[in-house]
C-alpha cells in the first residue's frame, strides 16, 4: 500500500498530472472549421471507409461464403485433408490466420492513410488551416 502520511487530496494530485501524455495532442489546426481543412477531412473519412469496405468484402467472399459453399457442395465438407475433414481444418484452424492477415493488412493501410493526411495537413498554408474562432 502507499504511504499513509499524506492527506487525501494530495494523493489525487500525485497520480493525476504526471500521467504519460494525454491524448489531447490532437491537431488544433485541422478541423472542419475551414473549407480546405473540411475537404481534407472528408477525403480522409472516405478513404478509410473505402478501405474498411474493401477489407470486409474480402472477408465476405472468403469466410462469409463458406456456409454457402458447404451447402452447395455437401461432399466437400467431409473431404479429408491431412487426415482431417476439410470443414474442420478450415473452420477449426485456417480461418484464424486469415482473420489476422486481414486485420494486419487493414492496419498497414489505415495508418498509411493517417500518415498521408498528416503530411497534407502539415503542408497546408497556415492561414488556410488556422481555425477561424478558437
Amino acid at each position: 500500500m502507499s504511504q499513509d502520511a499524506g492527506p487525501p487530496p494530495e494523493r489525487v494530485r500525485v497520480t493525476g498530472p504526471p500521467r504519460r501524455r494525454t491524448p489531447a495532442a490532437r491537431s488544433a489546426e485541422v478541423d472542419d472549421g475551414t473549407r480546405l481543412g473540411g475537404m481534407y477531412v472528408g477525403s480522409l473519412v472516405r478513404e478509410q471507409l473505402r478501405l474498411a469496405i474493401g477489407i470486409l468484402a474480402v472477408l465476405g467472399v472468403t469466410v462469409g461464403a463458406l456456409p454457402l459453399v458447404f451447402h452447395l457442395l455437401p461432399g466437400l465438407a467431409t473431404h479429408q485433408v491431412l487426415g482431417l475433414p476439410l470443414s474442420w481444418l478450415v473452420l477449426g484452424a485456417l480461418v484464424y490466420p486469415a482473420l489476422v492477415a486481414l486485420g494486419w493488412a487493414y492496419i498497414k493501410r489505415a495508418e498509411r492513410n493517417d500518415a498521408d493526411f498528416a503530411e497534407l495537413a502539415a503542408a497546408l498554408p497556415p492561414d488556410e488551416i488556422v481555425q477561424d474562432e478558437r
Binding site: A25, R26, A115, A121
Partner: peptide, 23 residues
C-alpha cells in the same frame, strides 16, 4: 455532427506526431 465526425476520424498524431506511449 460534421465537426464531431471529423474528430472521430482525424489521427491524433496530426501536427506534432507523437509516438504511442511506451510503458
Amino acid at each position: 455532427a460534421g465537426r464531431l465526425l471529423a474528430r472521430l476520424h482525424l489521427p491524433e498524431a496530426t501536427g506534432q506526431a507523437p509516438q504511442p506511449a511506451r510503458s
